[in-house]
């Protein structure tokens, strides 16, 4: 059986909120290392990969591998019933028909119990190769969100160029063009504002802004976002969570013929 107690229901709410517009029906794969999710969007352009490690829960118990097939719209409806500082416990039997969600108020004696019917989801699992990326950029998540939202007003696509000069986000559209360049930057008082650029080779790639704006819905999960790029491979957009947990998005590039 699965029993996973999360001190902050809000964390799970934010994760589901961040991915629900990208993927609809997902298997939450539970085993003794934690709860993982991998899902592609309908057009097979983007991939979501979430890992909530067992250390993020207290207690965490999962005796055998259980796949919880859940519709994220249904899950969102139930998670709305949790208050942000509630404690969340996920429960399921070994061969479950339902997943149970228990919300407990830390301050009062209220206990709310909900269940969601599970679905049989035949999901393709993709192997993501270990990649030595040509460029890795860590930057404030809010800054990345701002850049993507600003540039989508002008164009469908953004080119991300990483060179010795820094990282340049540039777009061209019908009304004109836009570009934002960031350089490495250390803020001693506010390290969450740091921009760190590690580059082993110059990288230049083009991506759909629609997807990047969608990924940025995860901005509330982490102060910083990490962008990993290599020429002609998918972009990795990573939001680190506590206890070595993470929410990762992969986006296939646009490539000229």
């Amino acid at each position: 059986m699965l029993e996973a107690r999360l001190e902050q229901a809000n964390l799970f709410k934010k994760v589901v909120d961040a991915i629900k517009d990208l993927v609809q029906d997902c298997n939450f794969d539970c085993n003794d290392s934690g709860i993982a999710l991998q899902a592609m969007d309908n057009s097979h352009v983007a991939l979501v990969s979430m890992m909530l490690r067992s250390e993020s829960f207290a207690p965490f118990r999962c005796d055998r591998n259980i796949a919880l097939g859940i519709n994220l719209t249904s899950l969102t409806k139930v998670l709305k019933c949790a208050q942000s500082d509630d404690i969340l416990t996920l429960k399921a039997e070994d061969a479950p028909d339902v997943v149970e969600l228990v919300f407990e108020s830390a301050e009062s004696d209220r206990i709310s119990e909900y269940s969601i019917k599970l679905m049989d989801i035949d999901q393709e699992h993709l192997g993501i190769p270990e990649t030595d990326y040509g460029a890795t950029i860590s930057m404030p998540a809010a800054e990345f969100q701002r850049i993507c939202r600003d540039l989508i007003a002008l164009s469908e696509s953004v080119s991300i160029e990483c060179s010795k000069e820094g990282v340049k986000f540039a777009c061209q559209g019908d009304i004109g063009s836009g570009a934002v360049t960031l350089r490495q930057h250390t803020n001693v008082d506010k390290p969450e504002m740091n921009v760190e650029i590690n580059m082993s080779e110059p990288v230049s790639l083009t991506f759909s802004l629609k997807y990047l704006v969608n990924f940025c819905k995860a901005s509330g999960l982490s102060n910083q976002v990490r962008l990993c790029l290599s020429n002609e491979v998918p972009l990795l957009v990573e939001y680190s969570l506590a206890n070595n947990s993470h929410l990762r998005f992969y986006l296939a590039p646009k490539i000229g013929d």
Binding site: M40, S43, H125, L126, Y250, I255
Partner: peptide, 14 residues
């Protein structure tokens, strides 16, 4: 012109 690739072209099915 730049064409949108599929993620399936990069990651293999397990």
């Amino acid at each position: 012109t730049q064409n949108q690739r599929s993620i399936l072209g990069f990651f293999s099915k397990k």
